[in-house]
Design a protein around this nucleic acid. Structure first.
Lengths: 150, 150
DNA sequence: GAGTAAGTTTGGAATTTTTCCAAACTGTTG
DNA sequence: CAACAGTTTGGAAAAATTCCAAACTTACTC
């Protein structure tokens, strides 16, 4: 993070604009705004609902349907990564490098684990008819002193 | 699995009965029937909907609500383990030993990976305020020759 | 820059999965 | 077998996500 041109200053959308171009997505007003929220703040884990609330509270006029569309398109084009840890809720991760996650079961919080902090010494061979697309390690946590069963 | 009394023969519910007793759950007709479907067939991964369909087609009269209740109670009491791999769908695994999963992204199929087939050489320290409850490794697969993005 | 085709956005309805609820029912205990 | 607690049930409700057709933007062309 020792860039000459700091993010989010005079050229507020240049970073997102480039990403959208590279992904072959039209830089519309809502995609630029959502992309800015997502990518200008470092590594983030958001749900559609959260991002929508955030956009609204920033005065960005965007529907929830568009937030869903956008998150899915960003995921399909590799700008985001979907993390599945909790039934009935999808998280989208702005960190698309290989890495893993801590998951706090009580409140659903996610925390990145850097790639190097987990070393998989042995991996099973993929079944003959398939190839591995990704290996996810999820370390589930309970806050100390919290004894609830779920 | 070298038992003298084979499963599912003359004493059809004895295995499930014992499990329910140990878990402190009343052996009701529907819990016995669902338990039998779940536990008499070796390692299984089912959704609530699947198990309900299966029960109905076996002539067991049980509501979907009860299937959900039962799966959740079995999970809470450690008879089952919930596996989260796919947004908007919960799988329940009859194998409660430490192990991991292959996940076929196309059709949502799950396959056990035995505990020893994956060796985690390095694990990050849990954050100071929390303790690890479980480490899940999910190896996501795409069937060879299948080039769909999702 | 105006015209146009293709791509996007939108609100609302629809879908899917899961939970909730109050009434009816069943298992257990004495 | 009475009585209480625990279970089951169908239907309604909730929560997350997708679908849809109409309105709106963007990118292209001249």
């Amino acid at each position: 993070m020792s860039n000459v041109r700091p993010e989010g200053s005079d050229r507020p959308f240049s970073q997102t604009l480039r990403r959208l171009k590279d992904a072959g997505l039209r830089p519309t007003r809502q995609r630029l705004a959502l992309g800015k929220l997502l990518f200008d703040a470092g590594d983030r884990h958001v749900t559609a609902e959260q991002l929508h609330d955030e956009a609204i509270s920033h005065g960005i006029k965007v529907s929830l349907a568009t937030v869903y569309n956008t998150l899915n398109q960003f995921t399909d084009t590799g700008l985001l990564r979907e993390v599945v840890v909790s039934p009935g809720r999808s998280y989208f991760d702005t960190n698309i490098d290989e890495h893993h996650h801590f998951f706090y079961e009580e409140d659903g919080a996610l925390k990145d684990i850097p790639r190097d902090a987990i070393e998989l010494a042995t991996l099973p061979d993929a079944p003959v008819d398939a190839e591995v697309t990704r290996v996810d390690v999820i370390v589930r946590l309970r806050r100390a002193g919290d004894n609830r069963s779920q």
